[in-house]
Computed example of a mutant assay.
Amino acid sequence: MAPSPATPVTATPPTAAEILAELAALEDPRVRRVNERHGDDHGVNLTKLRAVAKRVKTNQALATELWATQNTAARLVALLISKPRGYAPEDLDAMLRDARVPKVNDWLVNYQVKPHPAAEQLRAAWFADPDPRVAGAGWALTSHRIAAGDEGLDRSALLDQIEAEMAAAPENLQWAMNECLATIGIHSPELRARALDIGERLAVLKDYPTSPGCTSPYAPIWITEMVRRREG
């Protein structure tokens, strides 16, 4: 009689405490010093952090536990092991308002909100929010819509608002508005001259230090370079 095939061994998912311990062991003071200059209070190399998330795979319940720890590295893992449809719109709204660290804010918007079925609902709700971090997420989603070719937004009106408000906006919101200015200039040929003019006159991020090989966030340079690449 042939032996029965071995029963596959199913690995037990790690606990939140085990993930926190693993992340603590990956802490690097040099990485933390670099991250803190950008407002991110953790010292885990992102390649190693992604490897932790890849091993865990999708685990919505664990993601919820990790988010609740308020530990920045744990929250980044949570955003990598959860799926957008695992969150209700009100969950994402609460998470954004609680995301005080730039990298957490950025990953939340890019990995969970942009692909979410309620992304437009959230964009509309956040766009004019009095909290500049929340409004910045609304502007980031607006840029995403424009880059995706959505023609349902009044781009001229967006340029009016950018022209009037960007120079004095708080840093987070200013970055998001500047991205929208550049996105309009890149993807709307009929408005490109005006976008370039606004960028030149406001001179936002004109002197921002840019590493060799990277494109400056100064809108006129950004627009010109991206159009050159697209039109090749």
Rank of each mutant, 00 (worst) to 15 (best):
T15D: 05
T15L: 01
A16G: 14
A16F: 04
A16C: 15
A16E: 14
A16P: 07
A17V: 03
E18C: 00
E18Q: 15
E18H: 06
I19Q: 12
I19N: 09
L20R: 09
L20Q: 15
L20Y: 04
L20W: 02
A21Q: 14
L23C: 01
A24Q: 13
A24R: 13
A25C: 10
A25T: 13
L26I: 01
L26A: 04
E27K: 06
E27P: 05
E27A: 07
E27Y: 07
D28G: 01
D28H: 02
D28R: 01
P29N: 01
P29R: 11
R30K: 15
R30T: 11
R30S: 12
V31G: 02
V31M: 06
V31L: 05
V31W: 02
V31D: 05
R33Y: 07
R33V: 02
R33T: 11
R33I: 01
V34Y: 00
V34I: 12
V34K: 07
N35Q: 08
N35D: 02
E36G: 04
R37G: 12
R37H: 12
H38P: 00
G39I: 01
G39K: 04
D41M: 05
H42G: 00
H42N: 06
H42A: 00
G43A: 10
G43P: 01
V44M: 07
N45F: 04
N45L: 03
N45M: 03
L46K: 11
L46C: 02
L46I: 12
T47F: 02
K48Y: 03
K48M: 10
L49V: 06
R50V: 02
A51C: 08
V52Y: 13
V52I: 15
K54C: 01
K54V: 09
R55K: 15
R55T: 13
V56Q: 08
V56L: 11
K57C: 00
K57E: 11
K57Y: 00
T58Q: 12
T58K: 15
T58D: 07
N59S: 10
N59H: 15
Q60K: 08
A61H: 09
A61Y: 01
A61L: 11
L62F: 02
L62N: 10
A63L: 08
A63W: 03
L66V: 05
L66A: 07
L66S: 05
L66F: 06
W67V: 08
W67I: 09
W67H: 06
A68P: 03
A68C: 10
T69E: 09
T69H: 10
T69Q: 13
T69K: 12
Q70D: 12
Q70V: 00
N71D: 15
N71K: 05
N71H: 13
A73N: 07
A73C: 06
A73H: 07
A73V: 05
A73D: 06
A74Y: 07
A74R: 08
A74N: 04
R75P: 04
R75Q: 15
R75A: 03
L76Y: 07
V77N: 04
V77F: 02
A78S: 10
A78T: 07
A78N: 09
L79K: 00
L80Q: 15
L80H: 14
I81M: 06
I81Y: 11
S82G: 07
S82D: 02
K83R: 15
K83P: 00
P84H: 05
P84R: 09
R85A: 14
R85Q: 14
G86Q: 08
G86M: 03
Y87R: 06
A88D: 11
A88R: 13
A88H: 12
